[in-house]
Each structure stands twice: as C-alpha cells, then as structure tokens.
C-alpha cells in the first residue's frame, strides 16, 4: 500500500452508545476500510452491532438517543461532521442503503416509479419526466419483468423478490459510490435469495461500487464478499479475505460460527452450537466479550481488550491466543 492510497470508506474507532433508561453499548471500537469496487461482508449474530454500524455510516440512528464517537469518512466527507443539508445530499448520492424488509421499506401509498423518481429528482435536480425515465431504466436494470407497467404498481401489488428488486433500483437510482445492504435477503425465500444476491453482485461490478453487506448468513457473506469482518458484541473480532476466514479462522468465535453451519455436517451427528448467549451490552466491555462462552478461555482474556493480531497478511484477529505472523 502506498502512502497516497486512500480507501473510499474509512471507519476509525467507532463507538455507538444508546442512552435511555439503561445504556446500551452497541458498537465498541470498530475500524475498517473499504476500497472502491470492494465488497465487505459484516457477519454476526443478532445484536452484535452490525446493523447499527451500517446505520451509523448514514447517520440514520435517532440523534437524540445516540452517542456516536470515532471517525467515519466516505469519499471526501467526514460523515459525523456533516450539516443537515450536506447530510441529505450525501445520503442517496454518495452512499445509499437497502433494507431487510422490502415491504416496510417502500412507502405503501406511492407507486414504485414515483418513489424512485422522487429520489432522482432530489439529487439530480432534473424534471419529473427525466426522473421517470431514469426510474424505468433502473427497473430494467434490476430485471423487473414488464418494467414500464411496474412503474405504476404499488408495493402491495408486487411479490417479495420483486419488491426487493424495486428497493435495489431505488437505492441505486442516483449511482452511489457505496451501497450499504442491511440483510437484503433475510426476508426472502431461498430461491429468490440467490437471485437477488447474484443481481446485487452483478450490479456492484457493473457500476464499480463499493458495498457493505450485513448478514448473519455465512453462505451469503461468502457468496458476495471479497473480505469478511466478523462482529461480536460490538467489535470486529476477526477480519480478512473470504478464503482466509473460511479456511484458516483464527478467532474461536469465527471457528464456532463456521462449525455451526449445516453445510458439510454429517447426517445423524449433532450440529456444533456455541454454548451460551451473547453478553448484555449495558456496560462497555473491559475484556474479550466472547470469553464467557469460549472453549479456550485463558485467565488474561477478561483482563483487557485483546489487541488486533495480524495472523497472516491482511488477516486480523482479536484473540490473545492468535499468534502473529512472523515478520
């Protein structure tokens, strides 16, 4: 890496805390970087802070109840410092987002075409007709059958997969540089899932976008990502290229996750599950959050936060047992 090289997205020491009757430390020091055209998969179970990280990138979290610290840079924008007007310009144009449940993420009282055109008009400052034309192109691009007709369809008139395609068309309408996808296939059935994933992957390559996929499905993460970051209790515990993570997982949590999939399990043999449940995040962790569930726990695990260890090139693990690659 040269000194002039600057990744498209850079997140440094991101902390997100929700205030309220009790504090929730949802994200506790997340760092990652993303290059143009690269796809990062963030993998983790429910409540591991993956969706919160994603929403923080667009500052979609309720401002009054959240405390965000750290640094988020996308392109040339310091996201956390943007003024409301600049933030609105940034959202949708530089980075945009796909949501998990397409039925809820599309406004039920407007047609698909109207909703896409609205976003286009907002950012491209063009007329209604041009915006509608773009909406039609987008629907063609996401391969919705008879797109001209679907332009005037309401969300409830479409199937789940079709709605997610429309959602993708909406998110990509202004050609963002970064696409954030929050479990885009979780709400869909298996056959539609793979179609949507392939479509996303294809569009991402075609448009040269960077993308961040949040998912709890290892299969999905492996299918679409170049790199994977595994999150646990608000921290990235392991990150590396897909092949490294899958073949040489270093963190015990990653190994546990990989062992608990159905793929390749022997018939009649019980699946390996990780015992226990994720910790409550009412207080900021002082040691390794996974220690209480870890099979290979050491006394020093709960004493301090484990440092990131480079186990092989571009492969980091936050575990005291991980052995650094010998330089």
């Amino acid at each position: 890496m040269t000194a002039t090289h600057r990744p498209l997205v850079e997140v440094k020491d991101l902390h997100v805390r929700f205030r309220g009757e009790r504090n929730v430390h949802a994200v506790n020091g997340v760092d990652f970087a993303l290059d143009r055209g690269e796809v990062l998969g963030i993998l983790g179970e429910s409540g591991s802070g993956k969706s919160v990280t994603l929403k923080a990138l667009l500052r979609l979290l309720p401002e009054k109840r959240t405390v965000i610290s750290g640094q988020i840079r996308v392109g040339n924008e310091d996201v956390l410092a943007l003024e409301p007007e600049a933030l609105a310009d940034f959202r949708g144009k530089t980075a945009s987002m796909i949501f998990q449940e397409p039925m809820l993420a599309l406004d039920p009282v407007y047609t698909i075409g109207w909703q896409i055109a609205e976003a286009v008009e907002r950012h491209e400052k063009c007329g209604r007709d041009a915006a509608r034309q773009r909406a039609l192109e987008m629907l063609e691009r996401v391969r919705i059958p008879s797109p001209a007709r679907r332009l005037d369809a309401y969300p409830h008139e479409m199937s789940g997969g079709m709605r997610q395609r429309a959602m993708i068309a909406l998110a990509l309408a202004c050609k963002p540089q970064v696409l954030l996808a929050d479990e885009p296939t979780t709400a869909l059935d298996a056959t539609v899932q793979i179609q949507i994933l392939l479509l996303l992957r294809e569009l991402q390559r075609e448009l040269g976008m960077a993308a961040i996929f949040v998912t709890h499905d290892i299969g999905v993460a492996v299918e679409v990502s170049d790199r994977i970051a595994v999150m646990y209790a608000g921290r990235i515990v392991e990150t590396g290229k897909v092949a490294d993570i899958v073949r040489r997982p270093s963190h015990p949590y990653t190994r546990g996750l990989l062992a608990s999939t159905v793929h390749g399990a022997m018939r009649g043999k019980r699946l390996d599950a990780i015992p226990g449940a994720p910790p409550s995040l009412n207080e900021a962790p002082s040691g390794c959050s996974f220690a209480p569930r870890c099979k290979e726990v050491l006394p020093e695990c709960s004493q301090s936060l484990p440092q990131a260890v480079t186990v092989s090139p571009a492969h980091l693990s936050r575990c005291v047992r991980s052995t650094p690659v010998t330089a």
Binding site: S96, M97, V109
Partner: peptide, 26 residues
C-alpha cells in the same frame, strides 16, 4: 418508526419532505 421513513431518509429526503410526503399521506 417504519423502515420506509428510514429508507426515504437514506435516499436524501429532508425532515420536511418526509413529513409532507411520507408521513402525511400514510
């Protein structure tokens, strides 16, 4: 609290647009 309000926000709509267009009509 529905996703489409977040989705509208994520595609760059201002608070005023969200109230006028998305909240009011629903």
């Amino acid at each position: 609290s529905l996703d489409f309000v977040d989705a509208a926000r994520a595609s760059g709509a201002s608070s005023w647009t969200i109230i006028r267009v998305h909240i009011l009509n629903n």
